[in-house]
Amino acid sequence: MNAIKKHRVLPGFGLSLGTSLFYLGLIVLLPLSALIFRSSALGWQGLWEILGSERVLRSYRLTLGTSFAAAGVNAVFGFIIAWFLVRVKFPGKKIVDSLIDLPFALPTAVSGIALTAIYSRNGWLGAPLEALGIKVAFTPVGITFAMILVGLPFVVRTVQPALEELETELEEAALSLGAGRWKTFCRVIFPMVLPSLMTGFAMAFARALGEYGSVVFIAGNMPMKTEIASLLIITKLEQYDYAGATAIAIGMLAISFLLLLLINGLQSWSSRRLKGI
């Protein structure tokens, strides 16, 4: 104890530790334990039966697949937007910068209705796309689009500071030592931004997994085809089947937790590697 005390730079270790644990417990763990308590009525057998049913499995596959795709798209375009915002100076930059945060503030139902309006058969983009034989609204593609919208700010806002801190000297050094532009990007810039890009990806992914409001309008909600996990949960609640609903939620949480753990693991591995360089 004494050894720790000596090396501590910041004061208030005990206080901050206590506050953190109490806060996490109150805000995160307490509701989660209520979830587990509610579903405990089912027992393991009942839990497996629900989680193993084809309908639930399909909804998990759909939710995970579309969330992953959305987070992937956001990682690419979020990076480009962040790069643009950090490196390029242009009039009205502040406005573009604030636009990025809008999906945070937009009530999800509103974004769902707006997206459906654009991508449905008679919408601005839906009509021409339908003429080309591409259906967006009421398909997994539409679900992915909704998830992209809500997830974008997470990537931009995590990558932006990392890019800002990037020292241009490093780039100049790489260039002057004979690395081409592409090589400089791949070997110098990208590895340094990768940890924060992964954090952004993880956050966008997690957000997409839990998204209900915006997705439910554009999904079409066809059983076995475009039912996301959150919709199945609501379906169970409408039958007053609390235990079943929480079972699906717990399955989803377990998968998300494992995936986030994995992504965080990768992220800390890559940032350790970065420090090693």
Binding site: T116, S120, R121, N122, A137, N221, L231, I234
Partner: peptide
């Protein structure tokens, strides 16, 4: 399309023209 609620369906029929 199966909207989650009655107002959603009305919206689909009236606003979306579906």
């Amino acid at each position: 399309v199966l909207d989650a609620g009655a107002r959603g369906s009305t919206n689909t029929f009236v606003q979306r023209g579906i």
